[in-house]
Design a protein around this nucleic acid. Structure first.
Lengths: 345, 345
DNA sequence: CTGAAAGCGCTTACAG
DNA sequence: CTGAAAGCGCTTACAG
């Protein structure tokens, strides 16, 4: 029996009783190679051997040690998912979609919250820890991502223009255009302003491009430069002040996301300016609160869950070497018309 | 040099060029043992050796292979976090709180979404993959958790009465009592109903106990048995039908969580029954929508983030063997009075 | 189809 | 303070 090889030193925990591939082999009366083959299904084994190994493994409640498996096979069967925060429904949805597909391929998920302070170390270290990395965080510099992508497969979600890695995004420009045209064509708005910072992410830039295109197509100019407020509830309050400070009062506010739109709407209402009636207000993302608030927030819904799933599929293929050339994958977005644009209930 | 030992077979990828502890040792002119000691900081090393190793490691961009480290040390430096879903802000907050503290202790996070179908395998396998497990999922049978806890340290969040593992919960009964007393004493409500299933989780059971105690203290009986609706928006609609079907119309609905309360409130309003005016409505959790909806939802806020942090701290200590006896940790909850109870804006 | 054995890249008693 | 070497528990050419 293989377990009889000399062991001059004490095992780590001789009494732990945890089954190893050796104890399974011994009980099944086969070599550890056969145990490995049966359990991983990587090679043909005789029915008898298969059965005896399965039986022994079950009786001993054997679970292969992950570290040994990874070390020997040079595979972690794990993807890292890098996010900046779990705030809001976006990242949760994305993660759920990702997880579902990753699980289907038996890949585990290492959750990495990449704050600015701890990022540098973590991101580079991942190559000695996982098989691939999914990045869904906006504020990581492109060079940093490119450097990581040179070491290990990387898929990025929600931002564009990145070298050497797959990208999954949702369509923004066309839907932002359609949403803006709705305000102009259906509700007769003429004094529109974009609320959000197009320079902050490629996503917002695309939404702004659609907004701008709709104005141009209609022969209009925006009332003012984009109102660059933070994407928070506090940002909404700041935006109220900015809006009220404008030389010409806008009749439509196209916001970069729902959070800003929601807070902005609440702030305006406090000053007796009613969204939907006094002006049009739109968001982006269709968060839960968007349909509970009165008037309901007109917004756009990204297929976030699907984006996560697509990213997982892509990375899995990339790791396995069966993915095509690196490219950009664009999923469709859907406008959600409620009442804050001016439409009736 | 140690790298000269015979290597009859080809290395896995002789051209990968990835630095190993051997290449670092060679470049620094020391043994791999010294490299290990310097990099892990587990033993005293001379200033000269330390400096040379650090320099060599940096020049080679060396990152220790996680699998080899874990195999040799019998430590994964990883916690599994088991959740059922990422829906709603609760799990996101919990995870963020957990991650922050875990990261502080250099522990990584393996995200496990434990659907009913894939649970059995995953949960048991974790003992060969991580050092400890945090469980924040309601519908895993107590026996299953106990079985896992016999193999590996486990901390459970949000449910009570579990053997052999640490538990982190937030206080429910007292705050539910106070909230209910508020409806009775301040708003003069007399016909109260609890909406939610006390048997579904120990958490809801505790909230219901506080509700019941408040009634008893006030010499009241509930108008009906708890309305056992699902915790979803659809559940809220179902609850509307149940409420309207009651022999005596209630004047206060104490809901098990915000989602039900929100959907119930929206459904009632559609039937021209106005929460806050026609009856009192309360939730639990203080989700984002709770403060955007009109009237604002009176509810209770759990210190979810802190619960996550506490759980991480506990599990880390438990893994390190420096935790006291297994026990239950209760964090305080706070009532949030808005207008759906009947209070003025 | 199967086994003996090398190898994966670390950590850590052990002996200076 | 340091090095030689065993050991962690697997996978996988290699040779039947």
């Amino acid at each position: 029996m293989s377990t009889d090889r000399g062991r001059p030193r004490a095992r780590r925990s001789p009494t732990s009783g945890r089954a190893t591939i050796y104890s399974v082999a011994e009980r099944a009366g086969v070599s550890i190679a056969t145990v490995s083959r049966v359990l991983s299904g990587t090679a043909v084994t005789s029915p008898e051997a298969t059965e005896r190994v399965l039986k022994a493994a079950h009786e001993l409640a054997y679970v292969p040690q992950n570290s040994a498996k990874s070390l020997a096979s040079a595979r972690y069967q794990t993807h890292a998912v890098v996010i900046g925060s779990l705030d809001g429904p976006y990242y949760s949805e994305l993660l759920m979609g990702y997880e579902e597909v990753a699980a289907r391929h038996d890949q585990e998920l290492l959750l990495v919250v990449a704050d600015l302070p701890r990022r540098a170390r973590t991101l580079a270290d991942l190559r000695a820890r996982v098989d691939g990395v999914m990045i869904a965080q906006m504020d990581i510099p492109a060079e940093e991502i490119a450097a990581l992508a040179a070491l290990i497969p990387v898929v990025v979600v929600g931002r564009t223009r990145l070298e050497g890695c797959d990208v999954v995004i949702s369509e923004s420009t066309d839907t932002a255009n359609a949403l803006t045209r709705h305000l102009i064509d259906v509700h007769g708005r003429r004094r529109l302003v974009f609320v959000g910072d197009p320079d902050q992410s490629s996503d917002v830039a695309a939404r702004h491009a659609g907004f701008q295109a709709a104005l141009t197509e209609s022969g209009l100019d925006p009332v003012a430069e984009p109102l660059r407020v933070p994407y928070t509830e506090q940002g909404g309050d700041a935006a109220v002040a900015l809006v009220l400070g404008l030389p010409s009062r806008p009749d439509a506010l196209v916001c970069a996301n729902d959070e800003v739109a929601l807070a902005l709407g609440a702030g305006l209402r406090r000053r007796s300016i009613v969204p939907g009636a006094d002006l049009s207000l739109t968001g982006w993302d269709d968060v839960t609160a968007a349909r509970y608030v009165r008037p309901g927030l007109t917004t756009a819904r990204q297929p976030v869950r699907e984006m996560g799933g697509r990213a997982a599929e892509l990375l899995h293929r990339r790791v396995g070497g069966s993915a095509g050339p690196v490219g950009q994958h664009v999923l469709a977005t859907e406008a959600v018309i409620r009442q804050s644009c001016g439409c009736p209930d």
